[in-house]
């Protein structure tokens, strides 16, 4: 009974904190939340302008191919980059409030998910506009997303703890993300890669999530068993690792802050 009450209170806190993040993000813009919809559209327009002719032969619907990858990538980077500073940003609060620290990381990840949901409005419009015929396989979307959220949550915890001890992590991670993005097959035909880099890309968890989403939305296929296992293992494994890192360092974090 008491635990149930606590969980409800945590959920209330997360909702309130997320509302704050969203309002703060768009506090000084006229279009506000609309940017969450416009952003992927504009990015898609730019990339399509440059690459859609180039990859005409290998990708038959470049704008959708790109957008599918982009919204997942945005959700992952949005979650991890903002979570990295979640503990240090809320230093004062952490000392005053009785909640577990994870709440602040969950909030940032949740904010990224909300953002993704707005982006999906843009995605839906584009799917209709480009005449993509959806099949029942699209029901896999929430499953894929759930695994990606777990993966992001784990990464976020690890990064947030790391950042408390090493401020440089922020800059290192920016560089790492650039590399990671190019290895995620977001705007080029990953199937055509060969050799070593092909192995890297195909084992990259983010690319697995993106590839599966493309399969289910664009081509009406379901993820292969191997892909499903990969998604589940990466999601569950990283999430568990993040949680362990957190538990192990809980006290040291408070001292360091």
């Amino acid at each position: 009974m008491r635990n149930k009450k606590k969980r409800r209170q945590y959920a209330f806190v997360i909702r309130q904190l997320t509302a704050r993040e969203m309002k703060r993000k768009y506090a000084r813009s006229y279009l506000g939340i609309l940017w969450s919809v416009l952003n992927p559209l504009l990015s898609m327009a730019v990339l399509s302008l440059i690459f859609s002719r180039m990859f005409q032969k290998s990708i038959d619907n470049f704008p959708i191919y790109y957008l599918t990858g982009y919204i997942l990538w945005q959700m992952f980077t949005g979650a991890t980059v903002s979570s990295m500073t979640a503990l240090t940003d809320n230093k004062q609060l952490l000392l005053k409030v009785k909640f577990p620290m994870e709440i602040f990381i969950v909030t940032r990840v949740y904010t990224a998910v909300i953002n993704l949901i707005y982006s999906m409005a843009a995605y839906a419009i584009m799917l209709a506009l480009f005449g993509v015929k959806l099949k029942g396989t699209v029901l896999w979307f929430p499953v894929i997303l759930a695994f990606l959220v777990l993966f992001s949550l784990g990464m976020s915890c690890i990064l947030a703890v790391g950042y408390v001890f090493f401020g440089d992590l922020k800059h290192l991670y920016t560089v790492a993300l650039t590399l990671w993005m190019y290895c995620s097959g977001i705007f080029y035909p990953a199937q055509q890669l060969e050799g070593f880099i092909r192995t890297v890309v195909f084992y990259n968890p983010i690319y697995v999530y993106i590839r599966c989403l493309r399969k289910t939305v664009m081509y009406g296929q379901i993820p292969a068993a191997g892909e499903f296992v990969q998604m589940a293992l990466w999601g569950g494994g990283i999430c568990l690792a993040g949680w362990l890192v957190f538990q192990k360092n809980r006290n040291r974090i408070m001292e360091r802050l």
Partner: peptide
């Protein structure tokens, strides 16, 4: 957790939740 970019009402709920 008071946030200057939120309204008084929003801050009451945020702060209260915390």
């Amino acid at each position: 957790g008071f946030d200057p970019e939120l309204t008084g009402k929003e801050n009451v709920y945020l702060n209260g939740a915390l």
